[in-house]
Write a protein that binds this DNA or RNA. Sequence first.
DNA 1: CCGCAAAAGTGCAGAGACTGCAAGATCGGC
DNA 2: GCCGATCTTGCAGTCTCTGCACTTTTGCGG
Lengths: 203, 203
Amino acid sequence: MDAVTTGLRERKKLRTRRALGAAALELAVTHGLAEMTVEQIAEAADVSPRTFFNYFSSKEEAVVAADVERARDMGERLAERPDGEPVLEAVRAVMHEMLGDTPRSREWIAQARLVKSEPTLVPQQLAAYAAAERELTAIIAERTGRGPQDLYPAVTAAAVMSAMRVATTRWLESDGHGDLVGVVDQVIDLLAVGLQSPPSRAP
Amino acid sequence: MDAVTTGLRERKKLRTRRALGAAALELAVTHGLAEMTVEQIAEAADVSPRTFFNYFSSKEEAVVAADVERARDMGERLAERPDGEPVLEAVRAVMHEMLGDTPRSREWIAQARLVKSEPTLVPQQLAAYAAAERELTAIIAERTGRGPQDLYPAVTAAAVMSAMRVATTRWLESDGHGDLVGVVDQVIDLLAVGLQSPPSRAP
DNA sequence: CCGCAAAAGTGCAGAGACTGCAAGATCGGC
DNA sequence: GCCGATCTTGCAGTCTCTGCACTTTTGCGG
């Protein structure tokens, strides 16, 4: 009775969706977003162009599809953290886990770079983050036993997602040579102290 | 030597931009987003369809144009707050000011409702918020005398914008009958205490 | 005042995104 | 094996969005 009831049908659909997303990302990276056409994406995923639009409502949405998968992944990991753990610490732990997965990280970095170079993708990526935020809100609400009218889960989820976004953006600006885990830790610390202005770090 | 050097040229451009934005919002509200065409917007703003695309890159962007104006407004007000004031308190004060402007609020509510009913607008609205966030980051950096490499301004700006977004969303869900100012105060308080889970309010 | 260079507006033509519809293919249960 | 439900596909058509070349407007210095 769960959503994980994987009939052949569901599995096939998921495979198609992933194939389309992967093809879109691949083509966008190699040929550029503007040059890539829906027809090419569909062909690469071995599906008709019309079918593409049954899965995504635009090229851009397909390119950032991996983001909503990552969001789901993050939600699942978060749900598995021990009960008493403070939310921000749980998030920190989950991020450490996810960033440890090097191959996944690579694909993720490629996508981040692409978004940075193609402004059209920004709105879509933000929308993907918003979806992640909704999941996160639900998880946090459950962990803290709060009702849906309570502001706490929503604000926390929103703040956390924003902070992660800032962390990755910053890290990407330093061209991926810095320590992303370290940056993530810093932004979580900032949230944890209530955004009090900390003493400037020695230059 | 300033950007405020308003020659006739600049002023006219701004007027056209506003006219296009207003027309787009108006038409979207009355006729629906899908039904409204760029041609109609252009006509309403007394400009050629081709010119529309010199200002906005899509219908959706035009509809949420007012958001980036509000963001600029927020930035300006924030810059005028007294120097020693903590950032979150400055934000609180500015929001109180802005929400006091009833006529502006009305238009803003109309737009918010529209976005809620037309999912296509969500990504664009988020992009507008992101623009606001960038401005806010700069202001906060200046207020706290921090360099652009410092994470504090960026995280604060991101968290604040997210919190405002949550506040307005929540308030809108209760159909605009609740107390938005009160909700804003609550979300700022949550940020200020470092997202510690507060005791559940009595049901 | 006048002419000029830069900036803004416009028309046109074309590629391609995206949608509704109706017909064909596939799956899951009985 | 059969049937309803779901998924895929082709088709036709509308509209978005862009590059380019051309006209108009603006701001400025003579």
